[in-house]
């Protein structure tokens, strides 16, 4: 089962809003499109440095991801979610990960 891993840089004062956007807007849009929510975690906001927010989704295979992508593109809510989180981050990456043999 592949994973989509977004690692997002956020200023400490925006972390709460970012996480709230993922929970309240991203989760319903992504899961209704067919993605499985795996986790959302952050680095510590206590050290005065920008915070990394890591959001992980999974899917069955790339044929299913193609359908998920189509569902997202056709969902007006996805664009609103994208706009909200874009305004709150300072940078980030998106990478696809594939489990190795000994990882379930």
């Amino acid at each position: 089962m592949p994973f989509v891993v977004d690692t997002i840089q956020v200023e400490p004062e925006h972390v709460a809003a970012y996480i709230a956007a993922v929970e309240q807007h991203g989760l319903p849009v992504m899961t209704e499109a067919g993605a499985v929510f795996v986790s959302c975690a952050t680095t510590s906001a206590d050290f005065g440095a920008p915070v990394d927010v890591q959001v992980v989704w999974s899917f069955d295979d790339h044929a299913q991801w193609n359908v998920i992508r189509k569902n997202l593109v056709l969902d007006p809510r996805w664009y609103g979610y994208a706009q909200t989180v874009a305004a709150l981050r300072t940078g980030g990456t998106r990478r696809f990960y594939y489990p190795v043999g000994f990882s379930s």
């Binding site: 992508r69 996805w78 990456t93 990478r95």
Partner: peptide, 19 residues
């Protein structure tokens, strides 16, 4: 459905991608 499409091309394109 090719992984390169999702992994690489879409990284720069999809509305919710940080890149």
């Amino acid at each position: 459905v090719h992984p390169y499409h999702a992994d690489v091309l879409d990284r720069y394109l999809l509305a919710d991608s940080p890149e």
